[in-house]
Amino acid sequence: MKRISLLAALALLGAQGAALAADPNLARNLAATCANCHGTNGNAVKGAGIDALAGVPKDKTLQKLADFKSGDKPASIMHQIAKGYTDEQLDLIAGYFAAQK
């Protein structure tokens, strides 16, 4: 039974969704694209002036990213970066950082 509902869910997600679900390291890999500025696993260098993302609750990060995308939150660069990722990708990234210490 369980197996059938999982398959059905995958079918609903469509091809892109299936690819996402099939890759267990996708969240980790996507979050690593942010590490150049926000630090490895979101642990930014202290005192370097860019916010850490490690351990920040997922909904908080997602809200900020949505506000960057919409332009509600003023930014020097994050509005341009956030628009490069799909909402599904940002969801995975925010979840990954929330789970980091």
Binding site: C37, A44, A48, I50, S76, I77, A82
Partner: peptide
């Protein structure tokens, strides 16, 4: 997505060093 700064500024002068350290 992507793009350039709206204008040159000192805040990004500080962020650029933050980028380097990170």
């Amino acid at each position: 997505a992507g793009g350039v700064s709206a204008a040159r500024n000192e805040m990004e002068g500080k962020i650029a060093m933050g980028w380097a350290k990170n």
